[in-house]
């Protein structure tokens, strides 16, 4: 049960890490690589807050040993942006109001990214199915679904209220 030296490709960079075999990818990302965007929310694979992209697919990093992730391209939420400017998808999540407490957001955004990379204009049903493994307590999922629709260039309901004035000045996507 010695520690072993492994190579992980995370956000396009090769990282050498010394790990115990029982460490999950999530633990290594958070504890060894200081990538705390992936969260630990449930310990049993039911919440989706630990989601990362593994070769482009959204997977749970709490259900993957770090050693199993060798040889694969890992992208975490930190890898979607340069740290200063949000990626277009992140910006749409913010603008549409799809982020509230933000604990689900990294997993939710990465899941949405994987979906959008494989389907150019997913239907509402497809979006809900794709994010059904990511729990959110704040949004009722409505604005998340709308953000993914907007990100794929599909129309989303325009909500205005009488006092809101000119619709065009709204910060939509």
């Amino acid at each position: 049960m010695e520690q072993v030296l492994i190579k992980l490709t995370v956000n396009g960079r090769e990282e050498d890490v010394r790990v115990s075999p029982h460490k999950t990818l999530l633990e290594v990302l958070r504890d060894d690589l200081s990538l705390t965007g992936a969260k630990n929310g449930c310990e049993d694979g039911s919440c989706g807050t630990c989601t990362v992209l593994l070769d482009g697919a959204a997977v749970r990093s709490c259900l993957l040993l770090a050693m199993e992730a060798q040889g694969h391209e890992i992208v975490t939420i930190e890898g979607l942006s340069d740290g200063q400017n949000m990626s277009p998808l992140q910006e749409i999540f913010v603008n549409q109001g799809a982020v509230q407490c933000g604990f689900c957001s990294p997993g939710m955004i990465l899941t949405a990214k994987a979906l959008l990379d494989s389907a150019s204009s997913p239907t509402e049903t497809e979006i809900r199915e794709a994010i059904s493994g990511n729990l959110c307590r704040c949004t009722g999922y409505t604005k998340i679904v709308e953000a993914v629709m907007a990100a794929s260039g599909q129309p989303v309901p325009v909500r205005t209220h009488p006092y809101e004035g000119d619709v065009s000045e709204r910060a939509a996507s």
Binding site: G48, A57, A58, V59, L64, T111, E129, G133
Partner: peptide
């Protein structure tokens, strides 16, 4: 079965 990310692995 479960949810899509689980079925992926």
């Amino acid at each position: 079965v479960a949810v899509p990310p689980i079925r992926r692995v």
